[in-house]
Design a protein around this nucleic acid. Sequence first.
DNA 1: CTAGGGTTAG
Length: 699
Amino acid sequence: MNLASSVGRSLKHNNLSFFHFLLKSQLESGNPSSGLASFRQLLRSEAKPNDLTFSLVIKSIASSASFSSNPLGAKTGANQIQTHLVKLGIDRFVYLGTALLDLCMKLGCIDHARKLFDCMPDRDAVSWNALICGYSRNGFDFAALEMFAEMLREGFHPSSTTLVGLVPSCGRHELLFQGRSVHGYGVKAGLDLESQVQNTVTSMYAKSGDLASAKLLFEEMEERSVVSWNTMIGAYGHNGSFNEAMIVFTRMIKQSVEVNSVTIITLLSANANPQVIHCHAFKTRLLKDQSVITSLICAYAKHGSTNSAELLYKSSPQKNLVSLTAIISSYAEAGNMHMVIECFIRMQQLDMKLDSVAMISILNGISDSNLGHAFHCYGLKNGLSIHTLVANGLITMYSKLDDLEAAFSLFAELQEKHLTSWNSVISGCVQAGRGNEALQFFDQMKASGQDPDSITIACLLTACSQLGCLKLGKKFHNYIVKNTFEVEDFLGTALIDMYTKCGSIVQAERVFSTLRHQPCRAMWNTMISGYSWYGFEHEALHCYSKMLEQGLEPDRITFLGVLAACTHGGLVHEGKKYFRVMTEQFCIAPDLQHYACMVGLLGRAGLFDEALLCIEEMDIEPDSAVWGALLTACCLHHKVRVGEYLAKKMFLLDQGNGGLYVLMSNLYAAVERWDDVARVRELMREMGGDGCSGVSQIE
DNA sequence: CTAGGGTTAG
């Protein structure tokens, strides 16, 4: 039945209560049509709306679908209603003021809602709830917390609704202390037995890093709903414990809890295998849910299965920007700009406009300055460049393109320099190998009153590694300690790397052994190559086995360190073994650096035939580093003829390589052919080499 | 109440 026309009929009988009845039943059926239109019709009649009428109309607008598609209309509606309330003198009903406040919050008119609250002649706990929950829902988390404290000061009693609305605000900012206090209040007030409170508090603990409390709460729950199970899966996922998340999921299925779309989405974000989840979603008919499809596409894209992502995307009825962006970023990460552009064209055809997130994903893959300029222009034209994160993306892009000047001027033009922008420009310098400039920006940053975070410090430590500045590196280490920064994966790796590269393996060991968590792969890698540089090949190999014991899988960097250790220690047998382990057991295709190591290892041991065989069997073209490794071995073993042959090859490959001359000069010196030494030195001078490129810069 | 694209670090 059409509500507006029924209203017309009911009003002829001047029957206000019939109108109420209609609105109420429509609300209950969860299918409210235009409450505002009916209300306007009501106003045109003789009938005099009362407080109940307004309450129903407000509720109808708030829950009507029209407000998400037509927020402006709803806003005007809210304003009109407020005018009528005042005119009819019924604005003093507390519950009407609260309903209106709630409506404003739902429409995102936070300031207006606050004004309503401040002007309310009377307030009850529900009004406070509307204000606090409204702030929280709109992301004004600190305002929500402030008002909660204010509510308590004024002697009102928060209810479970208050807590359910407020607690997510703590979780979003990892405010463990505040979250715990609110939880404590709930326990004292006896509100913690409600399922919704338990779920939101559990989630808050997990997000704030207190997984133990989350687990305790979950295990002690008397009844667990789907939401509770989803919360716990998310809790483990959030903390990177994928296996635990899967265990909870299995328990959930065993207890025949019906899985919903959120379960699927949460599992995917916990880094579950998208194929497995895809099957499950298909079997449970959850694949019909658009958000499940979108999440699956994103998960496939993240796991590098771009093809599966594409297939699913093409088969899904609704094309949305989110899933296409995920596919784009997957292509961008693989450096496949061709496909990125194709996706971009698809977006244009579907009339989708790039938003800032899509823009950043594209920028992330650009390694060609023409494309870079094109998208920079696109960003400028479409007003995306104002966005801080887009600006950061541009800064990073220009740094990668080795156009630091462009990056600097973009940075200089930012009206507001956020921490992330400072980090982008500092990391840009470091990536481009210009550590000095990174340090200069850090000075500017401090002068502007901006404090660094762990990312800034990690970048600066890398700058110290590049410059060999142990003193400065130590200063940053002190800063970490003083400000109680958590030495997590990235920061820890940067710190260990700084100490090994700046000449203090002992300090590196100290950091490594006092880590609060298990070291990640990158840290093990850094230690392995560190030990190898210092000639501690046995320690390096010991690290390797320990790393495997911890269940970590080695990567190409690990083997680079391991092979280097074998080379330095002259461990030919071990080196060959690890090379096989890498290729056969871990299926890592050796690259030029691995081959250079192997050739060096064999050559140093005097096994020239084997070294040459190794080069012949390479499935990629050897570069000057590979030949150079053999040439170095020639110096050791006084193999002048082979050396000269290699030098010619290297010269053809890489004319600008000054190292070649140094090696040749060493080779002739080793066999006391001083005339040839002089000839090579002369050639070197002509080349413009200063002979100083090998000077150690470690303090 | 639970969940969903991108971001500076080795």
